[in-house]
Design a protein around this nucleic acid. Sequence first.
DNA 1: GGCTTTCTTGACCCGGGGGTCAACTTGTTG
DNA 2: CAACAAGTTGACCCCCGGGTCAAGAAAGCC
Lengths: 222, 222
Amino acid sequence: MESHATARRNDRMRADAQRNAEKLRAAAAELFQERGLKVPLKEIARRAGVSHGTLYNLYGTREALIDEVVTDLAAGRLDEVAEHALSFGDAWDGFAYYIEKVCELQATDPAVADVVSGRYPRAELLMAVCGRAQAASTRIIERAQRAGSLRPDFTSEDLLLVFGSSALLARAAAGAAPGAWRRGVAFLLDGLRTEAVRGPLPVAPLTTQQMYDVLGGLTVNP
Amino acid sequence: MESHATARRNDRMRADAQRNAEKLRAAAAELFQERGLKVPLKEIARRAGVSHGTLYNLYGTREALIDEVVTDLAAGRLDEVAEHALSFGDAWDGFAYYIEKVCELQATDPAVADVVSGRYPRAELLMAVCGRAQAASTRIIERAQRAGSLRPDFTSEDLLLVFGSSALLARAAAGAAPGAWRRGVAFLLDGLRTEAVRGPLPVAPLTTQQMYDVLGGLTVNP
DNA sequence: GGCTTTCTTGACCCGGGGGTCAACTTGTTG
DNA sequence: CAACAAGTTGACCCCCGGGTCAAGAAAGCC
């Protein structure tokens, strides 16, 4: 069984259908970036100037639309940040850059925030992006730890949780205090240096599975 | 004009109304503690074994119910923690105790989390509690700063934001990784000591108003 | 016990979001 | 240009949560 959108694009679609698909892509991109990945589908259709029935017909699910519209953009930006972080001469600087930049991306683009932390597990391409990002951050973390500047008890699961809560904070503060998240990140970074360590951590690190579960709940619960 | 619930309790209510009010209080207390202050009112009525119409009749608004049921409990616990924090010989230890304890309260009781961070600004008594808590944390912070152990650029607004995001994290992690928040708090505390400071913070502290706005958005947006 | 007043009930309204589908339009193709 | 297939539309369904209110039940008072 083929995925909805994929099947459609391989076969030849009628011209108007192609136009509509394009309008929907554009509208979705806009709204995802403005308000995150869970904007009402009907609203996307409305902005595209198309019936919501058409959206369902062309994409079938929100996840297909996400894969179509958001994944590449997010992937590009995240990869770029990770790559640049690894190019720093000083491992700590690279690590700090990575955290700040990712948090900044999240703060300026709710869609990215949802990619990093929100979790749309049914969006396959998206999940691939997450996997790559996870691998990159592990490299960045381990590099900084090998250099002795990042505390050794910090794990990449911790990092994801940092991203998750920073994203929430940034979103809540977007109107009243854009940039507030920078203070939080700054406090945290100061606490992540090896010299700042004052004792063992109170609980064991999360497993990857636990981390996914937590992230999943982060944007769902409220 | 008198508030709904207050007026009702001063006049003599019919016996069955009193019983229902009590059943509703009990159900609300349970559900608020289980799932936070925004459980559906109809569900509270259901658990109380009463029509939702009765709930509206007896309390009128969610806020009145919150004031009736949650405020005292939350106030008691928060006051107690603050008081104990100030009784520590070492100012830093008191500060650290305060943060950890409040976060723990939030993690074990979603209602408290909503009191501390979620914001129900129409619940008057609740807001009084928030004011007291705010005052207490200011004292705790300033004490630790005077002792030289807490970094001087940390404000009570920062503290509230810490509480806010910790609450979200704790709630998301409640199932998969209870206690995960402790790692976050530990990292942060290490970053809040004066010795950890590595430079000036990137942005100015929030005003109290900004902080309220942010907190308000924290539990609303997702 | 009857009569009044108070209270409770549940059907009903609203809006919002997700999702489906018969009837219609409009491309496309011979 | 006609006829068929492809695509579109919007009315319709669902569930949920908040909120109201006329009718009926129950308490209290004499």
